[in-house]
Nucleic acid binder design. Structure first.
Lengths: 114, 114
DNA sequence: TATTTTAGCTTGAACAAACAATCAACTTAA
DNA sequence: TTAAGTTGATTGTTTGTTCAAGCTAAAATA
């Protein structure tokens, strides 16, 4: 589990003024599990549903939280398949050349008209 | 499982002149499982190891086959986490605007000096 | 002020569900 | 009559979550 995933959800929970038990109840998960998530003590990332539940109730962007957890949103799997021939290059390039990654992501962020 | 994953590995196997049993033996998987993979009858994508084994023995690019199977190579998970804030935009943009996707991927492919 | 609640949190062990692969039985073509 | 391939049922493994037990600090109570 990501180092910052736990930090982020704990912080967000506190801002919302929930105790772990309160939030866990809303999400219908065990509060001890939420504790583990906040401490990055869960061996594996939660399921997408759980992550989305967290995001919704904590006013975090759902997709962002999914990526932060090290998952890829289910709906994007199609994209991977469709572009399977060029994806490896894209990812390798972004990994090996952080400047490039920054540039591409910047570009996308800019052209986005929210 | 991807529509073309099965087709691709079956085709590649035939080119190599293997029967399902022969190839399965090399990969140390059950030949009936290989059959299912070729027919896209396996409910879930194989593990990364199995995909890599297939790719190696069938002269397919390992990463490409992983993406085609709808998975993301383990080593790339870090990248997702690192850029969790901008990834959603990138993927959404690529999904919603195939032209954009093409362009970005082209660009990467071109600047790659193999 | 010492003592007992209580509210919030953490952790290892146990468990359940989802996922990945095999087994047993069959079909077909050669 | 065997070599190749398919399929539904079953099983094994990994992943995701809960359970049982306990810790700590701050309030309440004596």
């Amino acid at each position: 589990m990501s180092e910052d995933f736990g930090k982020l959800i704990r912080q967000a929970r506190k801002i919302k003024g929930y105790s772990q038990r309160e939030l866990a109840k809303i999400l219908k998960i065990d509060f001890t599990y939420l504790s583990k998530l906040e401490n990055n003590r869960a061996d594996y990332a939660p399921k997408e549903d759980v992550i989305r539940g967290l995001a919704r109730n904590l006013d975090i962007d759902e997709e962002e939280l999914i990526y932060l957890a090290g998952r890829i949103p289910h709906q994007e799997e199609e994209l991977l398949k469709q572009h399977y021939k060029s994806m490896p290059a894209l990812f390798r390039r972004m990994r090996e050349n952080p400047e490039f990654a920054k540039q591409v992501l910047q570009e996308v962020a800019n052209t986005e008209e929210k």
